[in-house]
Computed example of a mutant assay.
Amino acid sequence: MSDRILGAVCMVVGAGMAWAARGYVAPISYEPVGPSSFPLLMAGLLATAGAWLVVRPGPHQFAMPRSHLLPFGLSVAAVFTYAGLFQLLGFTLATTVMALPVGMAFGGGWKKSLAGGVGLGLVLYLLFDKLLDVVLPTGVLSFIFGGR
């Protein structure tokens, strides 16, 4: 029952975040996305996750087996490492460094995990930088991507 209460609270908080972010405007905007896009996306994700907690079946069906605790822990550590190295290494390289241990933690070989990480880093960088015009740090690879 406490999961359902948490879900309802998440839905209310998500609605509050969306209401608060609706008026975010930048006086001078260099990016077409705008300052309200990210808070609105997070509010939508929070409300959706809250709705799932409200309507999902009982928690006994979703218990995490002990065999999944190590990959989960490695993934959490990789995300914190990613956050710490994001500015220094840049988006592409930090994404590759994060994807390698996460891919291996869930059964991928190191070659496939590395290839997936490189592909993910490059594709997402090009998507955000070129298509969405969102500035991402290039870090140590600034000589390739034109330093920012």
Rank of each mutant, 00 (worst) to 15 (best):
P137V: 04
A51P: 11
G58P: 15
L88H: 02
P57Y: 05
G16V: 01
A8M: 08
A63F: 05
I144W: 03
E31L: 10
F72S: 12
S113G: 12
F128A: 07
M11R: 06
A83W: 05
P27K: 12
T48I: 04
D133L: 13
F128K: 04
V79K: 14
A94C: 09
V55F: 14
L70P: 11
A21R: 02
G116P: 04
Y125A: 00
P101L: 10
L89Y: 01
S2N: 15
I28W: 13
G50C: 12
G103D: 02
G147W: 05
A77R: 03
G146V: 04
L74N: 11
A26F: 03
L126Q: 13
A105S: 10
A99L: 13
Y125I: 01
L89K: 02
W110F: 14
T138W: 09
V76I: 11
L120T: 04
Y82L: 05
L100V: 13
V13L: 07
G7F: 15
A77H: 00
G34T: 03
R4T: 10
M17V: 10
L93N: 08
V54G: 07
V13I: 06
I28F: 08
I5C: 05
H68W: 13
Q61D: 15
P32I: 00
L124M: 08
R66N: 15
T92E: 02
G116N: 08
T95F: 02
G84I: 10
S113F: 07
A20L: 08
S2M: 10
P101I: 00
G109D: 03
L89F: 00
G7R: 11
A51T: 02
G116H: 08
G58I: 07
P71W: 00
G84N: 13
L85W: 09
D3Q: 11
A8K: 03
L124K: 04
A105W: 06
V140H: 00
F91C: 02
L89N: 02
V134K: 09
K130I: 13
S75T: 08
L45A: 05
A26E: 15
Y30R: 15
A20S: 11
T81L: 11
P57R: 15
G117W: 03
A63T: 11
